[in-house]
Design a protein around this nucleic acid. Sequence first.
DNA 1: CGGGTTTATTTTGCATACAAAATACGTTAT
DNA 2: ATAACGTATTTTGTATGCAAAATAAACCCG
Lengths: 219, 219
Amino acid sequence: MNSNVIVRAPLHAQVAERLRLLIDSGELAPGTRLNENELCQNMGVSRTPLREAIRSLATEGLVELQPNRGAIVSVVSQDDVTEILPIMASLEGLGGRLAAVHMQTDQIKQIRKIHNQMVTHYQNYEVTEYFETNQLIHELITEGSGNQTLVDTINSLSAKVRRARFSAQMTRESWAKAVSEHEEMITALEARDPKRLEAILIQHVETKRTTILGSLQQS
Amino acid sequence: MNSNVIVRAPLHAQVAERLRLLIDSGELAPGTRLNENELCQNMGVSRTPLREAIRSLATEGLVELQPNRGAIVSVVSQDDVTEILPIMASLEGLGGRLAAVHMQTDQIKQIRKIHNQMVTHYQNYEVTEYFETNQLIHELITEGSGNQTLVDTINSLSAKVRRARFSAQMTRESWAKAVSEHEEMITALEARDPKRLEAILIQHVETKRTTILGSLQQS
DNA sequence: CGGGTTTATTTTGCATACAAAATACGTTAT
DNA sequence: ATAACGTATTTTGTATGCAAAATAAACCCG
């Protein structure tokens, strides 16, 4: 009679997930010390799974371990962004190159659809929706590479700069540029032109880097 | 009076280190279940730090967690190698491109020295020494990029295929090709030609991929 | 004798308890 | 009053204990 038992994920995984959210949302700001007791009470779990979760986040780079002094939320400096984005550019470029060859035609059509939605959001100044569709397109292209390790690697790097990206204010020009680059991306994908798509993606991430750094500078 | 106190690393870090060694050396073969009690007694620690270490290795991808069924040593399939090496190619290429610009001239001279040693080892059929110097050159170039995140990312990927690389038998031809590619690499580095170095590195890792896959196929 | 069910044992997951280190605090001496 | 020392408290690190799940074994029934 145990038909629809919900096999809930291990506690430490749930805790890790929750911590990621707290960090992404900024509730746990960069530099904050993770007090184990406090977090335990907050989340209603004991220290064991919490600590395991923290270790995971540390390996992912979201928090930093300080021996005998616990963990702090990693602070992503300007330098970190400068380091990470060129790597993401290379990898997204690789992903695009592979996707242009491997993706199914109907998958590409699907991306074109989402792209059109994104453009509408752009025209209507719907920032959140724009970001979401934008992000989705990048993910779909990368997944289209058929290389799961590549997807994981990019996601891991992306996680570290996610907050910086959110908070980065786009200027009218940089936004327009991003959209036009996206248009080129889709066109290259539809034409199944690996080298061209790769080049555009690399350029696109470079544009992003400039935008983010420009925004970080002000603060 | 606490001059030379040795701050020993946290137990879980030591355990993780030891586990990595066991996995790399093959004492813990791919697919092996990690029995916690067994390992605890073996290493003389309790389960807590051991489990934390296992979580770390899981995030690194060296072991695979199976809910309620513990962890097994990851099995690197042919497909995994096929996925990972193109990524490493892109990243090492990026590293080279940056290194060609950023490295100090005397650092480049140092690499040339090591390269010459490597060639000698090649001529004398000293396989182990050849592998070590070879590996060292790649690391030094990547480090020369000045991008620590890049170094970490490459190392993480490298760790997963390390065993496959060791066990890969080089043919006379593939070995010769690898050496000649290395010669080209150093030349491009000395000429501070980023694009050329990048291209060679990408090609070089591609060669490696072929070698490893050819070797995996036989087994 | 074989398949399936129940029971026993092992093994993992989580919580708690204890030890060591680090931090915070108060006291004392200059 | 301030600096420095020593003590108290907090916080992390490790070990152990208990419960649930999974695996292995025994048993029963056909």
